[in-house]
Amino acid sequence: MNTEPIWKSWFARHGAKLLLFARQQARNPHDAEDLVQEAFVRIWRLYGHTGEVAPGLVYRAVRRLAIDWARSLDRRKIREQKVIADSPFHESFKFSLEQDERQKAILAMVDRLPPEQKEVLTLKIWGELTFDEIGRTLDLSLNTVASRYRYALRKLKDWLPAALEDAPQVEKKKES
């Protein structure tokens, strides 16, 4: 008999994507984990008894919490003058050795995108949400979401050749 709680399989399926999204909403990886934990626990306590929770609900909760926490953190920051370090986007991904450089170059490009385009791209590509769900998560219209996604892909496509040419050179410079 399988005794694993149902939330564990849900979390194994969506936890990584949620963390990725939370990383863009939070100031550091620790805050991102706190955001995901808080949002997931709140939503699961409300709807977990149904056995399945729509991921869009948790993404939305993550965003709402991030906004609330950012306000309180700003106040705290003024008080404590605390310096918060950010980490690159590619640290949230796992890589295969043979495609390591190409993948890193692509993720570096994603990191260069404007935040509003990056979060739409993240929710669409890795969160696997529909445009409608993304719109509800980010409180945006369907057209805004679709156009931001399209702009993001256009930029990535335009930047990719140059980024791939630069990537080996950067690596060679590092080696030398």
Binding site: F11, A12, G15, A16, K17, L19, L20, E33, V36, S92, F93, K94, Q103, I106, L107, V110, L121, I125, W126, L156
Partner: peptide, 11 residues
């Protein structure tokens, strides 16, 4: 497709 091939790290 290239973006989808990239997998975020699991928790």
């Amino acid at each position: 497709k290239e973006l989808q091939a990239l997998q975020p790290k699991p928790p």
